[in-house]
Simulated assay, not measured.
Amino acid sequence: MATATLTAPTAPAGRVGLLAGLQHTATLTWRNLVQIKHNPMELMDLSVQPIMFLLLFTYVFGGQMSGSTHAYLQFALAGIMVQNGLFATLTTAVGLNSDIQKGVFDRLRSLPIARSAPLAGRVAADLGKQVWSMLLMLGLGLALGFRPDGVAGVVGAVALMVVFALAMSWMMVLVGMVAENAEKVQMLGFVVMFPLTFSSSAFVSVSSMPGWLQAWVKVNPVTSLVDAMRALLVGGPVQGPVVHTLLWAAAIAVVFFPLALRAYQRRS
C-alpha cells in the first residue's frame, strides 16, 4: 500500500539585514536607471522640460522683469531649478502608482529582498535623474551667460536641492499610494506644487507682491529653498536660508515619511 509523503511547510525567511537591504536597494536603483537605455523617453521629461522653462522664462519674462535677459537669468535660474526639481518629484509618484497598477511590486515582493527596497530604489533613482536635470540646466545657463559665484556654491546648491527633493518625495510617494491612477496622481500633485512654487520668491521679488500675499510667501518653505540656492549660486546671505530650508526638509520628512511608508505597506 502506497503511503503519502507529507512535506513540512517551508519556514518564512527571516528579516533582511541592513547591509543586505542596502544592497537590494542599490540593485533596484540601478535597475530603474538602466531602463533609460531601453526607454530614453523616461529621461526626456527631465531634459526637455527644464530647457524649455529656462529659455521661456529668460527670454519671455527677462526684459520685463529685470530690464535685461542676463539680469533676470542671474536672478531666476535658482527659482527655475527649484520649480523643475519639485515638479520632478511627481515622476516618483506616477512611477510608483504605475508599478503597483501593473503588478510590478507584487513580483518583486515574491523575491527574497527587503520589502522597502523597491520603494527606496525608485526614490533613489529619481533623485539621480534630478541631478542630471540640474546639471543640464546649469550647463545651459552657463551657455546663456549665467555666472555663478563659485564652484563650491554650485555644489552646495545642488546638494541642498537633492535634500529638499528627497523630503518632498515622501509627500509625493503618499500621493502616489492613495491616488487611484496616474491621472489622479498628476492632478493631486499639481494642486500641491503650483501654489508652492509660484507663490514664492522663485520668479519675482517678494516686495512686488501684495502685502497679504507676502505674509504667506515669507513662510513658504519654497521661498527659503529658493533664497538659499540663489545665495549659494550668485552670492548673498547663506546661513539663515540654508538653516530654514534644512529645518523645513526635516519637518516634511518627519511628517510624510511614516505616512508614505504606511500607505506603501498597505498597497504593496
Rank of each mutant, 00 (worst) to 15 (best):
G62N: 04
P50N: 15
T25K: 07
F190A: 14
F105S: 03
A2I: 05
E183N: 09
V104Q: 03
Q265V: 00
K102Y: 08
N220R: 06
L188Y: 14
V162N: 00
W212D: 05
M1I: 13
D227F: 10
W248H: 10
K102A: 10
V192S: 04
M168R: 00
S207L: 06
A93E: 07
V243N: 13
M168S: 01
P221N: 08
A159G: 01
P112G: 04
P50Q: 15
G103P: 03
A93M: 07
G156K: 00
F75E: 06
L166R: 05
T223V: 08
L28A: 14
A93W: 05
M52V: 14
A117T: 07
M229Q: 12
Q265M: 01
R230H: 06
D126I: 02
P195Y: 12
H24D: 15
V48R: 08
A76N: 06
L247V: 15
R109V: 13
G153L: 03
T25G: 02
M41D: 12
A215G: 05
W30H: 13
S208G: 02
W248T: 03
V123W: 05
E42Q: 08
L18V: 13
L6C: 02
R230M: 10
L54S: 00
R115C: 05
A215M: 10
P148A: 08
P221V: 05
L174T: 02
D149K: 03
M41R: 11
L43I: 10
N181D: 15
V206N: 03
L18A: 13
A143R: 04
Q23I: 00
V16I: 11
R266C: 07
T3A: 10
W170T: 04
N84E: 12
Q74M: 15
S110H: 04
F75H: 14
F57Q: 13
L261P: 05
L136G: 12
M187K: 08
M161S: 04
F194N: 06
L261I: 12
A250C: 04
V48G: 10
T91P: 01
V185Q: 00
W170H: 05
V154G: 04
A260E: 09
A215P: 06
V175T: 13
A88H: 15
R122K: 14
V238M: 09
H24W: 14
H24T: 10
Y59G: 01
L213Q: 11
S110E: 10
S224E: 08
A4N: 04
